[in-house]
Structure formats: C-alpha cells, structure tokens
Design a protein around this nucleic acid. Structure first.
Length: 606
DNA sequence: CCACCAGAGCTC
DNA sequence: AGCTCTGGTGGC
C-alpha cells in the first residue's frame, strides 16, 4: 500500500506538494524529493489522503519521496506549529515560512538526530510584563532581575532591535548568567549551525540576540523578552517580512512563557494592550523654533531654499565650542525631496507604488519602495522643460553647513548609504572626538551611543511628519523622542526642533510624553480605520496579472480592495477575516492556477 | 568551434 | 525561490 503525502517544499507558493511513499510519515520530518528538474528538501505536512489544496489537475504525475532524512522532527513541535501559524498570519504560506524558521543547514541533505522536544509545563501561567523607560541601563537591570528569578539560572529568549544592543546586554550580564546562555551569532554559517544544535539539544537554555535569534530552538523558555519593540529593526527585510514581536508573542503563548516587552516608547499595538503611561519628560532641553522667521539659505534649483534659525546656529556653536558633537538631522537623502513641473505643477511619482520621488544625483529615488529611475528631461504631462526641486535634502544641506562653519570645526556627512562603513565610522569617531557637526539622516542618531552629542537639531520636523503614509507622525515622533534619550549623558542634551507650525499636536506631545501622543493618534486612526485597529495588506501584482480582474473578483467575494493609484501595481486590503482572505488569495500563489510571477505581499499592522 | 553567462521556464 | 535548460555572445 502506498500513501500520498503532503510535503512542504520551500518556495513562493502557498500549498504543499504531493508525493508517494510506501508508508505514511510523521509530520515535520525532512525528506528529499524531486522538484522540477532538480531535488529539494521538504518537510512532511499533515497526513491527508486528499490534497490540501483541492484536486490536483490531471496533468500532474505524482513522484516518490527519495529519502527520509530524520527520525525526529528537527524543528520540534513548537517551531513547527509556529511555522504553520506564520504561513497564514503573514500571508506567505507554510513553505516560505519554513524557509525563514529553519536554519540553512537543515536545507542540506545531511541527516541529524535530535531529541524529542518536551511539552510545556502544565503549571505555567504565562503572563505579560512591561518595562517602558527611556534609560537603557534601567531596562537592562530590570530584565536581568526578571531573568534572575528562575532558580535554575536564566531560561528563555532576549531579543534586541540591533546587533549592537544585543551585544551590549550580553556584556552587561553577570558571568553566572552568561554561563547558561549564548549570544546568537549574527551571521549564518558554521557557528550558527553549531549554536542552533546546542540550543536544540537543550545544552543551552538562554539566548540573547537580534532579529535572527527569534527562531532559536529553545525548549520550555521561562521568559521571552523583546526590547525596543517599537523599533523598525524588529521587522526583517525580504519576504516574508514578519515582526519579531508578533512571532515572539506567539512562541510565548505556545510555551506559556512570561512575555516581557520594553523600550523607550511602546508601539501602537502594545500601547493599546498595556495601558501604559510615560514617566519621563524632556523639559527645557527641548526647544521648538518657528522656521517661518528663520534665515533663508538659497539652494540652486530648489524652491524656498533651506531655513536655519538663529537659535539652531547659536546652540550648535555653543555645543561644539564645549567640545561636544552636534547632529543636524534631515531624514531626506539626496538633493531635493520632490521635483515638480514649473508649468503644470505636477510632481513625479514612483511608477511602482505611486509615492513622490526624491532627487538623488542624476536619478529619482522612491523613498517607499526603493525604485530608481533616471531624472526626467521634461514633464511627462505637458512636455515643459523647466523642472524645479522642492524641499531640499542632505546633499543641499551639507554645503550650507560647510560654508557656515568654514574650517572652524569638522563638518561631516553621515547616513546609511556610505560605503566601507566600518572604516568610515572609525575615522568619523576619531575626527569628532573633540566636537564637530555631523549632518545626516536619522541613521546618524546611532552616533549618540559612541560620541558626546550635546545638541541634536531637526532641520525640518514637519517634513518628517508629512510623509504620505499613515504612520508618518509616529515615525517623526519616535525619532525626535529617541534623540532626547539615546546614549550616555543624554539628560544634558539640547534638542532643537524647527517647524513651520510649533503648535502642532504631535510636537506638543513631545513635551508631555508618548502616552499623550498615542492617545490622540489612536483616536484619529480609529476614525479612519487604520492600524493598529485593522491590518493593512499590500499586494503587489506581477506584470502579467490584470489588476482590474483581481479587484473585481475580490469585490465579488465580499472584500473591499483599495486602489489609490490605478496606474501602479499595488492593491490594498483591510484584513478582517484573515482566514477567508487567505483562501481568497490562495489561487494567486498556486503553481497551476497562477498567472505569471508570484505577487508580493506586505503587511502593515501598527 | 566551444566556453561562459544571463534570462526563460518549470515545479505535485 | 531554486534549479536547469536555452541561446546568445565572445574568445581564439
């Protein structure tokens, strides 16, 4: 008698593939199967006599499993269930979820022998705790205290928003705690495989790390903690783009572990859930300046120029004279934030997602999806040749700063795009040791960790908050809030915020705290039905797929797709009944019924 | 005349 | 997403 098995083979499709084998196999085991012209590793899915994705078309000829690689499911019951949940929760399918959950070495043909994973203890109750404080030292100490409660030594997972933060926490731990644990390797390869096996076998019971560590194969973790949970660092690049906090929460539920959240400020979701309040205020250190009255510096080809207030220039000079570093922050790389036609006033939008594009050198760059295109010679609408820039960027700010402080002290540019980063960073730190001015994007805020930053100036606070996306105000608030608190000695730092309208509510909230910010922001988002009250799903269709057809079909099935830019390839949906929507989108990710390439999905949840 | 590389096409 | 097959280009 032969069995038909569902095998999850990592790939962009959402369904399992069917194979023949002499006997049924246990769920979660790895097998070697022929796929297309080659051979790949797959994981045995739920045993079904019927294919999980509906009837197979008659054309498909079933092939057989070539080898069974494990005797015990290598991921263990918990990571296996987590994977299945991720497949639907993140709209990526089990196969793609598997490719992010399982370490690379499990995708090779090698066989391994792992122990069975234990079930969670019945006596556990789980629970949640929150640690929201601006000072990192305070949070770290509190985390250690909570991890130290376990008499057998620390047990669980401590996740940080950046590699550097994880390392920092690791070194701050007392030796007795480090003995039981491991700092999760940041890169893949041999060291990762070794660490993974150590944790999987139960030799190590405590893991500290950044994003990659969220899938550490721990058993019965007592505590799962996510620091700076509102940070973008917890959302990975690539597909699926899952949120570490969401995954960590699910793991804590499966093990009934204590779920511990902390940071400088909470995300919208956690604020809603935790009824948190803010206990710190920047007070007089935070200065608002009305940019309307500030001195204008002309920028060639850009309307309006750049405005730098007297306060900003004076405070910069004072801080640098005292041997400190000043940051001038403008979160807009390139020369101008926008190009418009002088005649018809149309601005240039990204052909892929419809966002307004920036000028970077000779190119236009979409700040949302990263699409690049050559700078247009003429306006595509009216063929006018005169195009002007709007909202100057860093490339325009730097020369102004250099002219202003000519030779008096070092003035340098700093953002994520600078090549050969490590070496450059060292040179920059050395140069700024006795004070100076760094002009950069929000990325430059990390310099607060390594340099005595006495003053931070936000050149265009309105610009940060005015981006055409629902969470722009949050991003702006978070950046300025962070600049008030990040790094040693932040309590003495001045933060100057230039704005056209100093009475804006989100700016006012900076004086009062993030609870005031969230209360107002959440009310507004509730009225508009935006995250965190709902989840937004963005579907990017391949060229070959007719957008209209899809929109019509989804509408017929009772969904309400949004199409803000009919010329773009994106369709937006509010995720209400996740499972029903998953089923509706299923055909787009099926090997047989799909048209052209696979679409791409991103989720906005907070 | 064949090495080498980028793009197309297929996957139960 | 892989992986292999294809056909075009360029080297001698």
């Amino acid at each position: 008698m032969t069995a038909t098995l569902s095998i999850h083979v990592p790939g962009p499709w959402w369904h399992a593939l069917s194979y023949l084998h002499e006997t049924p196999l246990r769920e979660g085991l790895r097998v070697l199967v022929p796929v297309g012209r080659g051979k790949r590793i797959g994981f045995v899915g739920k045993e079904t006599s019927v294919s999980v994705d509906g009837p197979l078309s008659g054309k498909v000829r079933l092939r057989s499993v070539e080898a069974v690689l494990d005797d015990v499911p290598p991921l263990g019951w918990e990571l296996w269930r987590l994977t299945a949940w991720m497949g639907t929760a993140f709209f990526c399918g089990m196969p793609l979820a598997l490719s992010v959950v399982s370490p690379a070495f499990l995708m090779q043909r090698e066989t391994f022998s792992f122990p069975e994973t234990p079930l969670p203890e019945n006596t556990r109750t789980g629970g949640e705790e929150f640690v929201y404080r601006e000072e990192k030292r305070f949070r770290f100490e509190r985390y250690m205290e909570i991890l130290g409660r376990n008499p057998a030594g620390p047990s669980g997972l401590a996740l940080f928003s950046e590699e550097g933060e994880a390392r920092d926490f690791w070194t701050a731990l007392p030796g007795s705690m480090r003995e039981k644990g491991v700092l999760w390797p940041s890169l893949g390869g041999k060291r990762l495989a070794e660490t993974w096996r150590k944790v999987r076998s139960g030799e190590t019971t405590f893991v500290v790390g950044a994003r990659g560590a969220v899938f550490a194969p721990l058993s019965r973790p007592e505590v799962i903690l996510v620091d700076e949970e509102a940070s973008g660092g917890h959302i990975g690049p690539g597909t699926p783009a899952f949120h570490v906090r969401t995954v960590a929460f699910r793991r804590a539920q499966l093990w009934k572990s204590l779920f511990l959240l902390g940071g400088r400020m909470p995300s919208s979701r956690v604020f809603l859930r935790g009824r948190l309040s803010c206990s710190s205020r920047p007070g007089k250190r935070l200065i608002f300046v009305d940019v309307g009255r500030a001195k204008r510096h002309d920028v060639t080809g850009v309307e309006g120029g750049l405005r730098l207030s007297g306060t900003l220039v004076r405070r910069t000079f004072e801080a640098v004279s005292a041997g400190k570093v000043t940051l001038w922050l403008l979160d807009r790389k390139g020369y101008a934030g926008e190009v418009v036609c002088d005649q018809c006033g149309r601005s240039f939008h990204c052909p892929r997602c419809g966002t307004v594009c920036r000028v970077e050198g000779e190119r236009l760059h979409c700040p949302l999806c990263g699409e690049r295109q050559l700078f247009p010679r003429e306006c595509p609408a009216c063929r006018n040749l005169l195009l002007v820039g709007k909202r100057p960027g860093l490339e325009a700010l730097l020369p102004i700063a250099e002219r202003l402080w000519k030779g008096a002290f070092p003035v340098r540019l700093w953002h994520s795009g600078l090549s050969g980063e490590k070496r450059h960073l060292r040179a920059l730190l050395e140069e700024m040791r006795r004070g100076g001015l760094v002009v950069g994007t929000r990325y430059a805020l990390q310099l607060c960790d390594a340099l005595p930053v006495g003053c931070v100036s936000w050149i265009d606070a309105d610009g940060e908050a005015r981006r055409p996306f629902y969470d722009a105000r949050f991003q702006a608030f978070k950046m300025v809030w962070e600049s008030c608190w990040r790094g040693e000695g932040a309590e003495h730092r001045l933060v100057v915020v230039q704005s056209r309208n100093v009475s804006l509510p989100w700016l006012g909230a900076l004086k009062v705290g993030w609870d005031a910010f969230w209360r107002r922001e959440l009310q507004e988002r509730k009225d508009l039905d935006l995250p965190p009250w709902t989840t937004l799903l963005c579907l990017e269709l391949p060229e070959a797929m007719e957008k209209e057809c899809l929109v019509d079909r989804l509408e017929a099935e009772g969904f309400a797709p949004l199409d803000p830019d009919p010329s773009g390839r994106m369709v937006w949906l509010r995720v209400q009944e996740g499972h029903r929507l998953f089923r509706a989108l299923f055909p787009l990710f099926h090997l047989q019924s799909r048209q052209g390439d696979f679409p791409r999905i991103t989720l906005w949840r907070e």
